[in-house]
Design a protein around this nucleic acid. Structure first.
Lengths: 110, 110
DNA sequence: TTCTTTATATAGAATCTCTTAATATGGAAC
DNA sequence: GTTCCATATTAAGAGATTCTATATAAAGAA
């Protein structure tokens, strides 16, 4: 599923709240946590991780993965934690505003 | 407020469901219907209207507005109505998937 | 005649996501 | 040993949408 622009960063930060994880793991985590509804493309994810690190919201370190491969582990910084709160709150406001206009979702068609 | 990419078209279609309206009116309508939360920029709206018309989801005609000015009135086509259903349903699915991951919105800070 | 509101349009920048492809290694299967 | 699959990262380029800024124009009020 294509993501709406702007949600990826938030989803990544939220996923890292549970602890450090490498890129591949983040993507798998989001995918399974959403019941396969959200499929993160690596071509979107890695630029996003770079972005988030440049902004100081996550920090990275090379380590060995649980499958004995080298992998870059990312973890939330204190600033990232605050950013996550801001983004979550903003997202909730946005969804609420859009829902006010859209009304109840249409019936699922056979 | 910045819109998430992809929601503008849906909001426009939804607004036109109530009847034909010109661009300026659509923007004002969305703004007030969202309690001033969603502020549509004209630089986003007019390209969107062009896009929607090219796709056959809306049709336009020049008329005289309620303030006696020339204005281009847009109305939903049958295809636009179907498209609106699709987009609304997809939006609901997306919000549901993201919410599953994000959990409850954070408390509002003073 | 000046200001505010109504009304449309376009160019260009900024941003994000997606497609595609390249690279590399560990472990299992054969 | 070598082939295949899952794991893991990276980068280039395209595509799409939104935003900033600007130009134009006319009705009506002051």
């Amino acid at each position: 599923m294509e993501l709406l622009q702007g949600t990826l960063d938030m989803l990544v930060l939220r996923t890292l709240r549970a602890g450090p994880l490498h890129g591949y793991g983040i993507a798998k985590n989001i995918r399974s946590a959403s019941n396969e509804a959200l499929d993160i493309e690596f071509g979107s994810l890695y630029p996003a991780l770079k972005r988030l690190e440049m902004k100081g919201w996550i920090a990275s370190a090379w380590e060995t993965s649980e499958h004995n491969r080298r992998a870059k582990y990312y973890k939330l910084t204190a600033a990232g934690r605050k950013q996550l709160l801001r983004e979550h709150s903003k997202w909730a406001d946005f969804v609420s505003a859009v829902s006010r206009i859209m009304g109840p979702a249409p019936e699922v068609k056979g």
